[in-house]
Computed example of a mutant assay.
Amino acid sequence: MKSIKKIITRDKISTILFLIIPIVLVVIFVYIAIIWNVVVSLSDWDGLKPSYDFKGFGQYKDLFTNEIFLTSLWNNIQLILIFVPGSLIMGLFLAILLDQKVRKENVFKLIYLLPFTLSFVVTGFLWKWMYNVSRGVLNTLLESIGLGFFSNNWIQDADWAMFWVCVVLIWQYSGYMMLIFLAGIRSIPESHTMAAAVDGASGFQMYYRIIIPQLKASIFTGFVILLVFALKAFDLIFILTGGGPGYATEILPLTMYKEVFRKKHFSYGSAIATILFLLIMVVVIPYLYSTYRREK
């Protein structure tokens, strides 16, 4: 009995030790970091020398009267409005295609998912080269097949730059959304589709009236994932356009980076980071709550 108790005690101690280390790391690098960021945003820290003298909400007032911040916020909204629905629709379309019992399904899955496996830095450099006006693949290809009049300035056109950035993001994320939707489609009981087929439902009616309405959880999950990414996207846009031309593709994370690491406005940059955090929490908390209720 004593030996059994010793083994149980050792197991408990080892379990506690394994749990303590990640918990401490999360507390330090997540929760304390968030609190520290809020403290800095309320201070007068401006420059390389730290200063924690309380300034109040002055930085936040300055944000909403600053044209660059408002432009970045509007660009983030445009990114969400184009990228999120585009990725959901494209992912659903690819999932429906693969649900047709195609041959070599796994090969097509791999092809569709391959862009998502690339790092955003690699994707940024790849599409920056493709969008190049004079030597890019797209304009060169259009000219070689006699469609040179369709040649475009792509991301160098301030009016269309954000749209072409969203095209790149949709290309990268649609395969991931496909997996989410395909898993949702395959989890629908076969009896539902068989009953609809007996009632004479066509292929379009089957998806429109039976399958897609049962994908609410998959759609919601995909929506939250894409929305959170759209709010904190940085590396791909930083490599692809750097926020240009002008401020046409500058979003909040990029503005925060420039304010902190180029202009050394630490308190101002921290205020932008706090706004970003609050925006993400507005999305994540309802999702976690709905997931908890659904599991309960």
Results as ranks from 00 to 15, higher is better:
133 V>R: 13
173 Y>S: 13
81 L>T: 06
71 T>D: 11
181 F>Y: 10
69 F>S: 02
107 V>G: 00
149 F>C: 03
159 D>M: 08
112 Y>W: 12
92 L>A: 04
124 G>M: 06
182 L>F: 13
88 L>P: 02
136 G>C: 07
170 I>C: 07
97 L>D: 00
71 T>E: 14
153 N>T: 12
89 I>N: 07
89 I>Y: 10
106 N>W: 06
89 I>W: 07
117 T>Q: 04
67 E>K: 15
172 Q>Y: 02
94 L>A: 08
172 Q>R: 15
93 F>Y: 07
111 I>W: 04
155 I>D: 03
128 K>C: 00
162 M>K: 12
153 N>F: 12
159 D>P: 02
113 L>W: 10
136 G>I: 09
182 L>P: 03
134 S>M: 07
108 F>T: 01
86 G>E: 02
143 E>Y: 11
167 V>A: 13
105 E>W: 03
108 F>Q: 02
130 M>G: 10
97 L>H: 00
110 L>D: 00
147 L>P: 00
141 L>S: 14
78 Q>T: 13
62 D>C: 04
139 N>I: 08
106 N>G: 09
154 W>R: 10
87 S>Q: 06
163 F>D: 04
149 F>P: 01
74 W>Q: 13
65 T>N: 11
125 F>Q: 06
175 G>F: 04
146 G>E: 11
182 L>W: 04
123 T>Q: 12
